[in-house]
Amino acid sequence: MLEILKYSFFDLIRSRWTYIYCGFYLLFTLSLLWLSNDLSKVVISLMNVVLLLCPLIATMFGVMYYYNSREFTELLLAQPMKRTSIFLGQYLGLAGSLSASWLIGTGVPFVLYGVFGSAQAGNFLTLMLIGVALSFIFSALAFLIALKNENRIKGFGLAILVWLFFAVVYDGFLLLSLSYFNEYPLEKFALAASMFNPIDLSRILILLKLDISALMGFTGAVFRKFLGTGLGMAVSLGVLAVWVLLPTWGIRRVSLRKDF
């Protein structure tokens, strides 16, 4: 598996799109740091971008990478290797290269700015972690969707729908149901509902860390009220880990039963 991981990673690291992706973060972070001297504001601005962009790019890359490397995967399948190590290796290479783009693109400007000397070091690290978690989660989901759908257009469509659902539609539904049923105690429902959306969870995690009540929203406030800041962060981190593991397990399962 490590061999496959290494080659997928280096294959992707040299792709034009990885450079563009990394360059975008680099430019964006640099200009934010230039425009604002308040590091926590920069972290919040970046958070808003990352919550949409990381999942979107991970989804697109995941589907594209799977379909583009299909013939190569067939070559690997004919080699004396386990199926699961081929697919998990490819997935980890993909998620790893996306995370590397993100870490370099945003990390380098922050470090150069001297974030580790400031009070914002913890917030910055949480932001980094969330970018990595979202890259892993959404590339796993995309990989799984691509693995399940031979038809590229269908696969692309479904993957985009999944992103749209978690990034936009889910919150809309949640808000609608909260305002519709506002006569009832909804805290527990909201708490459970936010577990089912990794983007929401990431937002809560970073806002708990930043401790900004005004931006927390209903679910964030519920998290803090019920679990407290420390436990709230631990729970959201734990559930994010489950969000990585479940689709990864799905990739393993589907790859063992598929014909190529």
Partner: peptide, 28 residues
């Protein structure tokens, strides 16, 4: 999967990762 060590297979369509060099593919 180990039995595949005894088989050399030439697939019908030759498509490889675009960003790899021939030398690297052989090495891989």
């Amino acid at each position: 999967w180990k039995y595949r060590r005894q088989i050399a297979y030439l697939p019908q369509i030759a498509r490889f990762p675009d960003n790899l060099k021939v030398k690297e593919l052989l090495g891989m």
